Structures are given as C-alpha cells and as structure tokens.
Computed example of a mutant assay.
Amino acid sequence: MNEESQGPAPRLAGPVRNFSLQLSPTPRGARLARPLATEQLRTWGLPSHPAELIVAELATNAVAHGRVSGRDFRLSLYVIGDTLRIEVTDTRGDRLPCPQRSATDAESESGRGLLLVEALAERWGVVPGPPPCKTVWAEVGTGPSGTGPLAPPR
C-alpha cells in the first residue's frame, strides 16, 4: 500500500506547558483558583491579565452552578504556541452554561460572569463529558497585552 507523506509535522511556536490541579467545590476553592493560576503564569513569564479574571469567573461558576458535594472541580492551564487555554471541569454536565444577555434585575450583582469571559477571551465554549462532567474553556493570546495570534476556530 502506498501512503502519501505530508512532510514533517508542523512545529509549534514555543514550548507546550500545562498546569492542572483539583480544588474543593467551595467558595474557598474558587478563591484559591485565581492566585494559583496567577502564580503559575508568573512562573511561565506570561501576563496574568486577562487570564486571572477568566479563571476567577469560571471557578466561581463551577462552585455556584456545577457543585456536587464531595466532588472537586479541576482547573487546567495549557500554553501551546501563542495561546493560553483555561479549562475548568466540574461534575454537573447536566447544567450547561449560557451567558445572561439581560439580567432580570439591573442592580443584580451576579449573572454576568460569562459575559465577562466572552468579552475578555478570544474564544470560549463548553465540552460535555465524560459523564457526569463538563469542561468550560476559554482561550487568550499570550502577548504582552494578553492578545496574540490564534488559529482559526475549528
């Protein structure tokens, strides 16, 4: 059998880095996510803005809407080339997130977290599974202002 070769695999711009940890599904766990992510980004020499805000929102949502008693949530950071991918996995795959375009109460202090993620991230989404989990993810560039080239959406 003949197979055509596409040549060598494309090289990524820069190292591939990852960081992942489990946190308790409590307000304390959600609060810890931000400084732990910020410190990891500092260790990698990357800017923390806007990633720290995205981490805080996704972790808070995992605790507020994805909490199952006794089941932790996972925070993962991946840097591939010029892209930082933030993932938060919780154990409520039956509750998929959706941004609240209009709050019923204009004075409400909650309900706008995903709108913030949408505004700060270059793209974001949710991946169901494996049951009973879901992963909410967001991507930002790793340039000095938190922006950088991203591959087109797939």
Rank of each mutant, 00 (worst) to 15 (best):
Y78E: 15
A37T: 09
G29A: 03
A62Y: 00
Q6A: 15
A62R: 00
R112W: 14
I86N: 08
L46R: 04
W44V: 06
E139Q: 10
P130R: 00
P47V: 07
L58H: 04
V136Y: 01
D90G: 08
L84D: 07
S76W: 00
L77V: 05
Q22W: 02
S76E: 11
N61K: 07
P153F: 00
P27M: 02
G70I: 01
P27C: 06
A138L: 04
P97V: 02
R71F: 10
I86Y: 02
G125W: 01
K134V: 13
R31C: 09
V55N: 10
V16I: 10
L120Q: 08
A62T: 05
A30Y: 00
S48E: 12
S20Q: 15
S5L: 15
R71V: 11
S108A: 15
V127Y: 03
L23K: 04
L116C: 10
R154H: 14
G93A: 11
L96V: 08
V63Y: 06
R92K: 09
V68I: 09
R95Y: 01
S20L: 11
C98F: 05
R154D: 14
E122Y: 01
Q40S: 07
P10I: 12
Y78A: 13
P130K: 01
L96N: 04
W44N: 08
Q100Y: 07
A151P: 11
G14E: 07
L23W: 01
G29H: 01
M1L: 09
R42N: 09
K134L: 14
Q6V: 13
I86Q: 01
P50N: 06
L12V: 13
I86C: 04
R154V: 14
G146D: 02
A37V: 02
P132Q: 00
T135P: 07
Q40D: 09
V68A: 12
F73C: 09
Q100R: 13
Y78T: 15
I86S: 08
S108G: 02
D105I: 09
G70E: 14
A51F: 06
R112A: 15
D72A: 12
G45N: 05
A138S: 10
R74D: 14
R154G: 15
P130N: 01
L32E: 13
L96S: 11
Y78G: 12
C133K: 06
L46V: 07
C98V: 10
V79P: 06
V88P: 05
R92W: 03
T43A: 15
R11H: 13
